[in-house]
Amino acid sequence: MAPNTKVILIRHGQATHNLEDDFEQPDPQLTDLGKKQCVEGLRDAFAAGEWEDFKDLDLVVVSPLFRTLETAFLAFGKEFREEKVPFVVLPEFQETSPNPCDTGSSVESLKATFPSLDFSHCERHDWLTKSHGFYTRTNLGVRATCARKWLFERPEKVIAVVTHSGFLRWLTPQDFPFVEQRDKYRNCEYRGYTFASTTSDDGEGSPFKLVEENWSIELRKAKRAGETETPLLIADPSETAAEEVSPPSQGGDGSFDDPEQPTIVF
């Protein structure tokens, strides 16, 4: 691990399935608003200094779903094209549910759409299968630990991760609840982290625990100061159960795949 590694966790921009919670859409693309969010909420904000470490960015890690790949290119494409910042596409960072909206496209179609990216990690994994094996809902805790361990062992000092709201909860389970109440990432919201000094398993995101930086907490509080309170929805236990006892489409786009916490709905 690089000393004092900085990790910025980013949720993708608004995608077409977000509009009406249409979880049957296969691997949705960004909406026009979602593309605007990526440019104004991420790219322009970073360039203007909202995220101080943007100028030192070393690596972008991205989920292999279409909406996250689009988000990564809109936010960091200039740095990638200029060969300043490489992209690594990792299926470990894909969304949690087995629904069509959270199941990726074939490697062949991804290569055709994003020919400049290396999808070799997707070729080595059975990452499109979520009914059994490593990428099931019941294995989310293990997958999140593997993802944190991968980040922890990287030599880069500043890493951006473009992923999904459901999986973000498993990457940093201790963040929910945070401040006044539980809080789901908005589209194109980002939060800055460093690794905790301890790697013991304390049940709150360890080993390789990510701890949010104070500037990130304060910036999010300031941005949301004018928002109305978001209602809480307590998930039925059947919706958080494994897919062996729950219908495959239950649980939306990963919003119910939550480590021991109720769910906010937007």
Rank of each mutant, 00 (worst) to 15 (best):
M1Q: 00
A2I: 01
K6D: 07
I8A: 10
H12I: 06
L19S: 11
D22Q: 08
P26G: 00
P28D: 09
D32L: 15
C38Q: 07
V39S: 01
G41H: 02
R43L: 10
R43W: 04
A45S: 14
A47V: 04
D56E: 11
S63D: 10
S63L: 07
L65C: 05
F76H: 10
G77R: 09
K78N: 00
E79K: 06
F80N: 05
R81G: 06
E82W: 04
E83D: 08
K84A: 06
P86Y: 04
F87P: 03
F87N: 01
L90E: 15
P91W: 00
E92H: 15
S97T: 14
S97E: 11
D102G: 11
G104C: 14
S109M: 09
K111T: 09
A112C: 01
F114H: 10
E123R: 07
W127V: 07
K130W: 05
F134Q: 11
F134G: 00
T136V: 14
T136M: 05
T136F: 04
T136C: 12
R137F: 14
T138H: 09
L140I: 10
G141M: 08
C146T: 07
K149F: 01
L151V: 10
L151D: 03
E153M: 05
P155S: 11
E156A: 04
K157P: 01
I159E: 00
T163G: 04
T163Q: 02
G166D: 05
R169T: 00
W170Y: 08
W170M: 01
F176T: 12
F178C: 12
E180R: 13
D183E: 13
D183F: 14
N187Y: 08
E189S: 06
E189T: 03
Y190N: 13
G192V: 15
T194H: 15
T198S: 15
T198G: 13
D201W: 06
D202Q: 02
G203W: 01
S206K: 02
P207Y: 03
F208A: 01
F208Q: 02
K209T: 11
V211D: 03
N214F: 11
S216R: 03
I217N: 00
E218M: 04
L219Y: 09
K221I: 14
A222T: 08
E227D: 10
E229G: 07
A235R: 14
E239S: 15
E239H: 13
T240A: 02
A242T: 15
E244N: 00
S249A: 12
Q250N: 01
G251R: 04
D253K: 12
G254C: 11
P259G: 08
E260H: 08
E260L: 08
I264E: 09
V265G: 06
